[in-house]
Design a binder for these strands. Structure first.
Length: 302
DNA sequence: AACCGGATCAACCGCGGGATT
DNA sequence: GAATCCCGCGGTTGATCCGGT
C-alpha cells in the first residue's frame, strides 16, 4: 500500500511564487504563527500545498535569512562540516545562522565541489585525488554537470560511517537551539567550536588553514553574540533604508537594492507600473516598507 | 542581434521518521 | 503493533540568467 500524497494536487498552483502569494503567506504567519503547515494554505487563502508554503517560508520569506553570497570563511566552514557530516545539509545549515539547507546544498553542488576538484581534493571523501581519479573526474566534469550515482553511493557510504559523530553533533545543536529561544542566529556554541577545532587538528594537511578559518569564525561569532535579535533586526531595517546592508540577494527574482530604494522613494511607481507586481519579487526590506514592518516584527520580537 | 551552453537557484518530489490514533 | 498523519530532509528538475561566439 503506497503512501498517500501530502495533499490532493487538484486545483493547486505550482511554480514560482507571486508577490501576492508571498504577501498572503507572510501576513498569515506573522499574525498567526505556524501550527500546522497543512492548514496554512487554506487559512491563508492560498492555492498551494502546505509543503510548498513551508518551503517558501523557510527558504525565502523568513525574516532572519542572511542573503548574499557565501564568504570564504563560510565556504571553508562548509567544507569542514561536510567532511564530517556528509550530505546532511540541514545539520550543516544549523551551524550557519540565516542560511538554509537548500542554499548550502546549492552552493556546494555548484561551486564548492568544483573548487575542491580544482584543488585536487575529492569532494566526497575530502582526500587528495590521485592522478587516475583526477583524470576520470576531469573527463566526467566536462561531459556532465549532474551528480553521478557513484557520488551518491559514496555519499551514502560516507554517511553511514558518520552516524555516531552526527549524533553528538545533533545533541549539541539541539542544546544550542534550546538555549537561544527566539534568537535563531545564535546557534553554534562554544562546544561546537571546540569539537570543530579538535576535529580540524586531526586533519593533517589542512590544519593551519582550518585554524585560520576557526579563528575568523570565532571572531564573527563573538560579534554576533553581542547582538540580540531585535537589535539585529533593527539594524537590518535601518541598513536597508540607508542602503548599507551587506545581506542582499543578487537573485534575479528580487529587485535590486537600487530599484527597491527607488520604489521606496517613489511608491507611485508600483501603481503606475503593474509589471513590478506581476513580474518581480520585492526584497524583504521593500516588502516590509509597504506593509508596516514594525507591527509585523512584534511577532518575532515577542 | 541571435544563438548556445554552462551556471545558478527556487521549487518540486519522494521518502523516512516521529507522533498520534 | 499497525495504520495514518505530518514534518523535514536530500536529490533532482527546470526556468532563468549570463557570458561567449
Amino acid at each position: 500500500m503506497g503512501r498517500q500524497p501530502c495533499c490532493d494536487k487538484i486545483g493547486l498552483k505550482r511554480g514560482p511564487w507571486t508577490i501576492e502569494e508571498d504577501h498572503k503567506l507572510m501576513n498569515f504567519i506573522l499574525n498567526n504563527g505556524i501550527h500546522c503547515w497543512r492548514m496554512v494554505p487554506k487559512l491563508a487563502g492560498l492555492l498551494r500545498c502546505g509543503k510548498s508554503c513551508r518551503l517558501r517560508w523557510i527558504n525565502y520569506l523568513r525574516p532572519d535569512l542572511k542573503r548574499g553570497g557565501f564568504t570564504e570563511v563560510e565556504e571553508n566552514q562548509i567544507i569542514q562540516l561536510h567532511s564530517r557530516l556528509g550530505n546532511r545539509w540541514s545539520k550543516i545549515a544549523a551551524h550557519f545562522p540565516g542560511r538554509t539547507d537548500n542554499e548550502i546544498k546549492n552552493h556546494w553542488n555548484t561551486r564548492i565541489k568544483k573548487r575542491l576538484k580544482i584543488l585536487g581534493l575529492d569532494p566526497v571523501t575530502h582526500q587528495p585525488i590521485n592522478q587516475d581519479q583526477k583524470k576520470i573526474i576531469s573527463e566526467t566534469t566536462t561531459t556532465t554537470t549532474t551528480t553521478s550515482n557513484d557520488d551518491h553511493d559514496q555519499d551514502q557510504d560516507q554517511g553511514q560511517s558518520k552516524v555516531e559523530e552526527e549524533t553528538s553533533l545533533d545533541d549539541q545543536a539541539a542544546k544550542s537551539n534550546n538555549n537561544t529561544d527566539n534568537d535563531d542566529r545564535q546557534i553554534s556554541t562554544s562546544s561546537d567550536q571546540e569539537e570543530i577545532t579538535a576535529s580540524a587538528a586531526t586533519t593533517t594537511t589542512d590544519e593551519t588553514k582550518y585554524n585560520d578559518v576557526l579563528d575568523n569564525f570565532d571572531d564573527e561569532l563573538l560579534e554576533f553574540q553581542k547582538l540580540d535579535f531585535s537589535t539585529w533586526m533593527d539594524q537590518e531595517i535601518n541598513n536597508s533604508i540607508s542602503g548599507s546592508s551587506s545581506s542582499y540577494s543578487t537573485s534575479s527574482s528580487l529587485l535590486s537594492l537600487d530599484e527597491s530604494n527607488n520604489i521606496i522613494n517613489n511608491p507611485s511607481l508600483v501603481e503606475a507600473d503593474q509589471t513590478y507586481l506581476d513580474n518581480s519579487f520585492f526584497s524583504w526590506e521593500v516588502f516590509n516598507y509597504h506593509h508596516q514592518l514594525d507591527q509585523d516584527l512584534l511577532f518575532f520580537k515577542n
